[in-house]
């Protein structure tokens, strides 16, 4: 059984090696269902602990909508995010931390032309799945990127 688990874990870590630290944490069914209905369930490693705490503290005013969950779900989601948060220092002083405003996000997407963000199929930078076809499953590897209106990018790094 151990062997199987090991084999599976090696398999799971194959895609997106470069960003494995940020996107490695498994998306739990509860996290997916509570935080992955209106937007894709973002990998917990993309914000640090303090930023997740800020986000969870004001779910009733979550980017203009009421995304509050019951007390029990709140506690378990918060602890899941805290356990799997990224390690970078605070990215923003904003009351509402945005993954898309982090230095890491900007750097990773620096080659994406402005026109892409305005494309109706993309609509917003938070719509990961518009380009990352594996985003729903937490996969963001190079091999699974298809930017609407652009040729497939081939990059070795």
């Amino acid at each position: 059984m151990k062997k199987l688990a090991l084999a599976l874990s090696i398999f799971a870590s194959l895609p997106a090696l470069a960003d494995s630290e940020r996107t490695a944490a498994p998306l739990t069914p509860q996290y997916k269902s509570e935080c992955g209905s209106c937007h894709v369930a973002f990998p917990p490693g993309l914000l640090n602990k303090a930023d997740w705490q800020k986000t969870m503290a004001r779910l009733d005013k979550h980017f203009g909508t009421d995304a509050s969950v019951d007390a029990k779900a709140h506690q378990s989601i918060l602890s899941y995010l805290e356990r799997n948060a990224g390690s970078r220092s605070a990215v923003q002083a904003a009351a509402e931390p945005r993954i898309t405003a982090t230095n890491w996000f900007r750097k990773e997407h620096r080659e994406v032309p402005g026109s892409v963000w305005k494309d109706a199929r993309v609509k917003t930078a938070a719509n990961c799945v518009a380009c990352h076809s594996g985003a729903e499953q937490g996969r963001y590897g190079e091999s699974e990127i298809a930017v609407p209106g652009m040729q497939r990018r081939h990059e070795e790094d």
Partner: peptide, 8 residues
């Protein structure tokens, strides 16, 4: 489609 996030 979600009007804010674009999610299906």
């Amino acid at each position: 489609r979600h009007a804010i996030t674009g999610k299906t």
